[in-house]
Write a protein that binds this DNA or RNA. Structure first.
Length: 257
DNA sequence: ATGGTTGAAGATCAA
C-alpha cells in the first residue's frame, strides 16, 4: 500500500502534473497540501474521473488540504486540527483508508521569525503534538503525511548558513518536530535512508535552486509503531520537480506491506 | 544587502 504526500502549490495550476502523477505512480492514498482554493474552484470531477475518491478541506487563496484514495472514498475522521476553535486556516484533514488512519498536514511556514507567524507555527505544533499523542493511544496504523515546514537536521538542507535565520530550522521548530519522534513516531524517509544520505523534497523557484540542487527536506511521513511495523520503503520522487510547470515540492511516499 | 519566482487574487500577500 503506497501512501504519498504532495504539496501541489495551487491545485488548478498543477492539475496536469497531479493527474500525471496519479496515473504514473498510482498511489493508494495521496495527501495534498496548498490547494489554494475551495468549493467549485477545486477540480473534483477530474480527480474522480481519474479513479480517486477525495476528502477536501479547501480554503480560498491559500492553504487547503485533501486526502485522495484510489478506487474508494476516504472515511472522514477529522476536518481541521483540534485544539483551537478560533483557527480558521485549512491545514489538517484526517481519514481512514483500508484500515490505516491517514492525515494530510500543512504545517505553518512561520516566516518571518520572530513574530506572530512564528508564534502561530509553534502553537500549531503544540496542538499537533497533543493530537498525535491521542492517535498513538489508539494503537492502530497511522501515517501523518505532509509539508511540515521543518528541516529536521543540518543534513536536511543544502546550506545551513543560507537557512540559519529561517523559521524552518530554528531550534524551537526542530525541538517541536523531535518531540513528535520522541512520542514514538518514525520518520519513514530517514528510517529507510539514514544520514549521511541527503534527500530533499523542496527546491525554491527562486535563484535557480533546482538547477543548483539547493533544496531541503520538509515533506515528511511519520508512522505510528503499528504502521512502522509494516514499513517496506520510502522516498521522494525527485524527478517530478524537474518537469514543466512543476510544483516547488516533489511527492514523498511510503510503502506499507 | 538584495533579489531572485510562482500562484491566486486582484491594485499585494504568502511562500
Amino acid at each position: 500500500m503506497r501512501i504519498a504526500t504532495y504539496n501541489v502549490n495551487g491545485i488548478n495550476a498543477r492539475l496536469p502534473r497531479l493527474l500525471e502523477y496519479l496515473d504514473e505512480a498510482q498511489p493508494d492514498v495521496l495527501c495534498l497540501q496548498e490547494l489554494k482554493g475551495e468549493g467549485d474552484r477545486i477540480p473534483a470531477r477530474e480527480i474522480e474521473a481519474a479513479g480517486y475518491g477525495a476528502l477536501w478541506h479547501g480554503q480560498k487563496g491559500f492553504n487547503g488540504v485533501a486526502i485522495l484514495a484510489r478506487g474508494r472514498q476516504p472515511v472522514e475522521r477529522k476536518v481541521g486540527l483540534p485544539g483551537d476553535p478560533e483557527d480558521v486556516q485549512s491545514r489538517y484533514v484526517e481519514a481512514e483508508v483500508d484500515g490505516v488512519v491517514v492525515a494530510s498536514i500543512y504545517l505553518p511556514n512561520g516566516n518571518p521569525q520572530p513574530g506572530p507567524k512564528f508564534d502561530y507555527k509553534l502553537a500549531w505544533m503544540a496542538r499537533l503534538a497533543a493530537h498525535a499523542e491521542a492517535l498513538l493511544a489508539e494503537e492502530v496504523p497511522v501515517v501523518l503525511a505532509g509539508d511540515y515546514n521543518v528541516i529536521p537536521t543540518d543534513r536536511d538542507t543544502f546550506s545551513v548558513r543560507a537557512m540559519q535565520d529561517d523559521a524552518l530550522m530554528q531550534p524551537e521548530s526542530r525541538a517541536a518536530f523531535r518531540a513528535l519522534l520522541f512520542q514514538g513516531w518514525t520518520d519513514a524517509i530517514r528510517a529507510r535512508h539514514p544520514e549521511p544520505e541527503q534527500i530533499f523534497s523542496f527546491w525554491d523557484y527562486q535563484a535557480g535552486a533546482w538547477q543548483r540542487d539547493a533544496g531541503f527536506r520538509i515533506d515528511h511521513l511519520l508512522l505510528s509503531p503499528q504502521a512502522a511495523d509494516r514499513l517496506v520503503d520510502a522516498n521522494v520522487d525527485k524527478a517530478i520537480r524537474g518537469r514543466e510547470k512543476a510544483s516547488d515540492h516533489a511527492p514523498a511516499w511510503v510503502d506499507l506491506r
